[in-house]
Simulated assay, not measured.
Amino acid sequence: MVDVTIRVNGQARSLDIPPQVSLLDALRERFGLTGPKKGCDQGACGACTVLADGERINSCLALAVQYDGREITTIEGVDDPLQTAFVRNDGLQCGYCTPGQICSALGMLAEYKDGAPSAVTEPDADPGELTEEEIRERMSGNLCRCGAYNGIVKAIQETAALDTEEVSS
């Protein structure tokens, strides 16, 4: 057993767990947070995406002991205009993937804002304009079995435009 303290959604939470427990299982089974979903349990679907110190990760592939002393944000700890943009733009249907989609989109927007390139980034791209192609590529690790991708892209574009307006104001 290993003693681990993880800050989850701003609150320090302690565990005494076997070292092989995934972060996803710790969040769901030990802390009762049902936002991160166990979709594929192989890192292929993105339903378990959470933010670790602001960076998006697949919590099913991470061991809880790796995150001792770190900040984990799940959908339960998110309060962002992106959430209402998802609703307004029909970026969800059944809702199963939505927590992971939103956490991933928040991490992706931060990556983009910081200038992290992607496979489709143009060499001298204007970081103020996030294209549909760029969003689709950067969000490709998050699957939606209902096919709400068009609404997800619109919600992210809307939120990115709000961020750009705030910076220029």
Score class of each variant (00 low, 15 high):
residue 163 D to Q: 15
residue 75 I to P: 11
residue 37 K to Q: 13
residue 21 V to D: 07
residue 63 L to R: 11
residue 95 G to T: 09
residue 145 R to H: 01
residue 131 T to V: 10
residue 38 K to L: 04
residue 164 T to N: 02
residue 74 T to Y: 02
residue 29 E to C: 07
residue 58 N to Y: 15
residue 72 I to W: 10
residue 107 G to P: 04
residue 119 A to E: 11
residue 92 L to H: 12
residue 60 C to P: 10
residue 43 G to R: 12
residue 130 L to Q: 04
residue 24 L to M: 11
residue 117 P to E: 13
residue 133 E to S: 13
residue 4 V to I: 09
residue 78 V to H: 07
residue 134 E to C: 04
residue 68 D to Y: 12
residue 143 L to K: 05
residue 142 N to Q: 08
residue 73 T to R: 13
residue 86 F to H: 13
residue 65 V to M: 10
residue 131 T to Q: 01
residue 39 G to W: 04
residue 128 G to F: 03
residue 139 M to L: 13
residue 10 G to C: 02
residue 87 V to F: 12
residue 134 E to H: 12
residue 142 N to V: 08
residue 130 L to I: 07
residue 156 I to A: 13
residue 107 G to Y: 03
residue 90 D to R: 14
residue 124 D to R: 08
residue 49 T to E: 00
residue 57 I to Q: 02
residue 36 P to A: 03
residue 114 D to T: 05
residue 163 D to M: 09
residue 126 D to W: 00
residue 47 A to L: 09
residue 168 S to H: 10
residue 88 R to I: 00
residue 167 V to D: 14
residue 41 D to V: 01
residue 138 R to W: 05
residue 75 I to D: 01
residue 120 V to D: 02
residue 56 R to V: 09
residue 64 A to G: 06
residue 121 T to A: 04
residue 50 V to Y: 10
residue 149 Y to S: 00
residue 99 P to T: 04
residue 116 A to I: 15
